[in-house]
């Protein structure tokens, strides 16, 4: 009895663990898209955030600095993207892909170079305990519930907080309103005096910073601060899909990312679940793990198809998404 409950709880914990970088990536991308920018560079942005944050954090053994570094790295990518698509009016799709390729390459390059030269910082024991430990001191000892709700590292809670703040910003503040206007109908926003370009710049850069946080999470908490070539591993693309799944609301994205996190967690947790519930889940051992890997993408495809099939198209997707705004062409 206990072990089956534990199996479930552990699975859920893993789901939340896996879901956190998704949440960060999705929230960042929501900021991008709501202001009208379809930023496909999430994967690359997360990679850059991962490497800068990890390097900074590991060498200083400070989680705080790691987060700062990651945010800065993400902002850097966001700045490039914003400059190219807003000021230089480049095609958003292609620019985003360029960021992905560049960012991923940069992360690999720096990581491998440092690794092979032996200069990749290793974590100190105290930092390691920060990475692997975490949790709110007293609350986490509550049986079951404590494990489920209070035993995570700081970034998990920060991610939720960020998602909530972003949600408030978008739907409840005046700046968020203006930003939405800029994404929805730049010409109308312009006519009222909203600076469409500035709104986009702001949101792209901050959103990319948040994505960077997602990246460093992958590096430090999922890969435990150890270098390997697959730090981001497609989570960036899942985030892009999650935005649609969450209907462009970062509050919805919270539970959306945990659901996807569950799908991802099942890959490693399925065997223990199966042994905990043999009667129901014995068939599951024959499911290839690759199916679990592919599941988030398949689910996203289904979401994409079904949302586009809906006749009554009231989505949170801004009408001006993906289109560059050039005031002259009024």
């Amino acid at each position: 009895m206990n072990s089956s409950v534990m199996a479930i709880i552990l699975t859920l914990c893993e789901a939340i663990r896996r879901g956190t970088p998704l949440l960060l990536g999705t929230t960042g991308e929501i900021l991008n898209e709501k202001s009208g920018s379809l930023n496909l560079g999430v994967e690359g942005t997360m990679a850059v955030g991962a490497i800068t944050g990890a390097l900074l954090g590991l060498s200083t053994s400070s989680l705080f600095l790691a987060l700062i570094g990651a945010f800065a790295g993400g902002m850097f990518c966001g700045l490039i993207y914003a400059f190219l698509t807003i000021t230089l009016k480049a095609n958003q799709n292609v620019t985003g892909l360029a960021i992905t390729i560049f960012g991923g390459g940069l992360c690999l390059f720096v990581g491998e170079t440092l690794k092979s030269s032996g200069k990749f910082p290793a974590y100190t024991t105290e930092f390691y305990s920060v990475i692997t430990g975490g949790g709110i001191p007293l609350l986490k000892d509550i049986p079951y519930v404590g494990q489920l709700l209070f035993s995570y590292n700081a970034l998990v809670y920060i991610a939720i907080a960020i998602a909530v703040v972003v949600w408030i910003y978008i739907s409840k503040t005046k700046s968020g309103l203006r930003m939405r206007a800029a994404g929805e109908n730049p010409a109308a926003a312009d006519s009222v005096g909203i600076n469409v370009d500035a709104e986009r710049y702001k949101n792209i850069i901050v959103g990319s910073g948040i994505m960077g946080l997602g990246g460093v999470y992958m590096a430090l908490f999922i890969n435990n601060g150890l270098w390997n070539t697959d730090w981001i591993n497609g989570y960036g693309w899942i985030a892009v899909a999650l935005v649609i799944f969450a209907n462009w609301s970062s509050a919805r994205a919270i539970w959306g990312s945990y659901i996807f996190g569950l799908l991802l967690a099942l890959k490693s947790r399925m065997p223990s679940l199966a042994s905990a519930f043999p009667s129901i889940l014995s068939w599951s051992t024959s499911i290839p793990t690759e199916l679990f890997d592919a599941l988030p993408f398949i689910v996203t495809m289904l979401v994409l198809i079904f949302t586009s099939m809906r006749k009554h198209k009231s989505t949170g997707s801004p009408a001006g998404l993906g289109l560059n705004y050039f005031r002259e062409e009024r």
């Binding site: 690359g44 190219l84 230089l88 292609v94 620019t95 360029a98 390059f109």
Partner: peptide, 21 residues
């Protein structure tokens, strides 16, 4: 590291996008 080719490709794309402007 041969990831340099990715980095270079990315930079090339950036500069070409800029030149498109």
């Amino acid at each position: 590291s041969d990831a340099m080719s990715d980095v270079l490709q990315g930079i090339i794309l950036f500069t070409v996008l800029a030149s498109d402007f």
